[in-house]
Measured scan of single mutants.
Amino acid sequence: MDETGKELVLALYDYQEKSPREVTMKKGDILTLLNSTNKDWWKVEVNDRQGFVPAAYVKKL
């Protein structure tokens, strides 16, 4: 969790967005987890953008 109590995830792999609903991340990025109710796609925030990334590409910290 960060200082505001939000849950964080670590990008395990690079991911290039394939639609406007997704976000690009690089391996090693720390992202804010917004929603993990879907087992396949998690909603995150990175670089002031919100979108989805494959759940298998990130790990909760």
Score class of each variant (00 low, 15 high):
1 M>L: 12
1 M>C: 15
1 M>A: 13
1 M>I: 12
1 M>R: 11
2 D>G: 14
2 D>I: 14
2 D>E: 13
2 D>W: 14
2 D>M: 14
3 E>Y: 10
3 E>P: 14
4 T>C: 15
4 T>Q: 12
5 G>D: 12
5 G>Q: 13
5 G>C: 15
6 K>T: 13
7 E>R: 11
7 E>W: 11
7 E>F: 10
8 L>R: 10
8 L>T: 08
9 V>H: 03
9 V>I: 07
9 V>M: 05
10 L>Q: 10
11 A>H: 00
11 A>C: 12
12 L>K: 04
13 Y>H: 11
14 D>A: 06
15 Y>W: 10
15 Y>F: 07
16 Q>W: 14
16 Q>C: 11
17 E>Y: 04
17 E>M: 11
18 K>T: 12
18 K>A: 10
18 K>S: 10
19 S>T: 12
19 S>M: 07
21 R>D: 12
21 R>F: 13
21 R>L: 13
22 E>G: 12
22 E>V: 04
22 E>R: 04
22 E>K: 04
22 E>C: 06
23 V>A: 05
23 V>T: 05
24 T>K: 04
24 T>Y: 03
24 T>F: 04
25 M>K: 00
25 M>R: 00
26 K>Y: 10
26 K>I: 08
26 K>N: 08
27 K>L: 05
27 K>R: 10
27 K>C: 08
27 K>Y: 05
28 G>C: 11
28 G>S: 03
28 G>V: 00
29 D>Q: 15
29 D>R: 02
29 D>E: 11
30 I>L: 08
30 I>P: 01
30 I>F: 06
31 L>S: 02
31 L>R: 01
31 L>Y: 08
31 L>M: 13
32 T>I: 15
32 T>A: 10
32 T>R: 13
32 T>C: 10
33 L>Y: 02
33 L>H: 01
33 L>F: 03
33 L>V: 06
33 L>R: 01
34 L>A: 03
34 L>K: 05
34 L>Y: 03
34 L>N: 02
34 L>V: 12
34 L>G: 01
35 N>H: 07
35 N>W: 06
36 S>D: 15
37 T>L: 08
37 T>M: 10
37 T>I: 09
37 T>G: 09
37 T>Y: 09
38 N>Y: 08
38 N>W: 06
38 N>T: 06
39 K>C: 10
39 K>A: 12
39 K>V: 10
40 D>M: 12
41 W>E: 04
41 W>Q: 02
41 W>H: 02
41 W>T: 02
42 W>A: 04
42 W>H: 03
43 K>C: 14
43 K>E: 14
44 V>E: 00
44 V>S: 00
45 E>L: 09
45 E>F: 06
45 E>D: 06
46 V>D: 13
46 V>I: 15
47 N>L: 13
47 N>S: 10
47 N>K: 12
48 D>A: 10
48 D>N: 13
48 D>Q: 12
48 D>W: 07
49 R>H: 07
49 R>Q: 07
50 Q>V: 15
50 Q>Y: 06
50 Q>R: 11
51 G>P: 00
51 G>Y: 04
51 G>N: 01
52 F>C: 12
52 F>N: 04
52 F>S: 03
52 F>L: 08
53 V>F: 01
53 V>N: 00
53 V>R: 00
54 P>M: 02
54 P>G: 01
54 P>S: 01
54 P>A: 03
54 P>R: 03
55 A>P: 06
55 A>D: 02
56 A>R: 14
56 A>G: 11
56 A>D: 11
56 A>C: 15
56 A>T: 11
58 V>M: 06
58 V>I: 08
60 K>F: 08
60 K>D: 05
61 L>I: 14
61 L>D: 03
61 L>W: 07
61 L>E: 04
